[in-house]
Design a protein around this nucleic acid. Structure first.
Lengths: 193, 193
DNA sequence: CCTTTAATTTGACCGTGGTCAATTTAATAA
DNA sequence: TTATTAAATTGACCACGGTCAAATTAAAGG
């Protein structure tokens, strides 16, 4: 029969996560090294991989948690009533997602679940984002010809597009905000100049 | 004064690329190892990195060239006159881009130029894709309220969205084609059920 | 308390991308 | 032809993520 999870296990895991958060706070996400994490956590390298399949899984966890906290704020705030307000509400999340090239790439890579059994934290937040959008749009439908869900998926697609283009040196003179507003206008309010 | 490029250099470079193409043909993109490339090309490992900054730059080159050949076909073909035809025309390119998770991730990562000076092959193809779309849409504008360029950027965003979702185990029951058609209908023909 | 067994931890080791001082090769100058 | 110098090549070496058989620890049974 399977034994209960030991308290020691939870403590080790917590120490590893705390060490990682500490490093990220000091040096950013990209600079995180597994060696440094286990050094600060006071464990062997193998222990890290006994707790997390690979380094990216830990990143998925930490970044997913941060995105979730942004979504908590979005859910608690007032429902936006215009594309401009939507973009304004989304800016903090977009800023975090694009804070490092490494972070954005990892988010994109983990936004789809690798398999049905294991949907990671980031992939879960993507589902949540679209739900939040759909909630907004079902209360205040901009368009009547397509469902709130489809509208929400489109908002999501344009949000990613605006962030992606932001990383392109050719086009990053325009901010994510200024790029996203016309997209959402054209998507949510077609025909209204 | 700078000397001309030696013939030897070009030959070495060609041998490296040919070896890489050979490996990709046999085992796919993800399985490519630099060790194996230099082994087949008959050079030392350092030579590889004297020709390509890193492994991804070579991948950028090879994948960019393949995308370009798909775009050549698109440009030679007839201009599509409906969202369905657009999607149909785009399917070969989408299939290639999503042939391996590794390939799709690399494409996303390289779709924005790292700096103004060095716009890689993949980033260049992304500009070309949007130009082709804009060409289509300026001859046959589906919507009059927004520019062909904006319409083109939207088509691009939805194409990426449809491919990304395809990798998510939760949603990949629907094909890229079936996912993209409603997106483009809603984007290009708003108000027409 | 001791024995057994499952869970956890360990660290030497590996695979692979990438670096760089030293060497070789080829072009130019004398 | 020979000396000089810039370009190209080499391979030992490093960094870092990840593996795994062996050792350790903690819980359950007698």
């Amino acid at each position: 029969m399977a034994r209960a999870v030991q308290k020691r296990t939870l403590e080790t895991r917590a120490r590893l996560i705390a060490a990682a958060e500490e490093i990220i706070g000091e040096c950013g996400f990209e600079a995180l090294r597994v060696e440094e994490v286990v050094l600060r956590a006071g464990t062997a390298k193998g222990t890290f991989f006994a707790h997390f399949r690979d380094k990216d899984v830990l990143m998925d966890l930490i970044i997913g948690a941060r995105i979730d906290s942004y979504l908590d704020v979005l859910e608690a705030a007032q429902v936006p009533t215009s594309p401009e307000e939507m973009v304004e509400a989304l800016m903090p999340l977009c800023r975090f997602m694009t804070c490092e090239r490494y972070v954005y790439d990892l988010i994109l890579r983990y936004s789809g679940a690798a398999s049905v059994e294991e949907i990671g934290p980031i992939a879960t937040t993507f589902g949540r984002i679209v739900e939040i959008f759909a909630g907004w749009l079902s209360h205040q439908p901009f368009r009547k010809d397509i469902s709130a869900d489809l509208q929400a998926e489109g908002v999501h697609a344009f949000m990613l597009q605006a962030m992606s283009v932001n990383f392109c040196a050719l086009h990053n003179a325009t901010s994510v905000r200024d790029r996203l507003v016309p997209y959402l206008h054209a998507w949510l309010c077609p025909g209204q100049a």
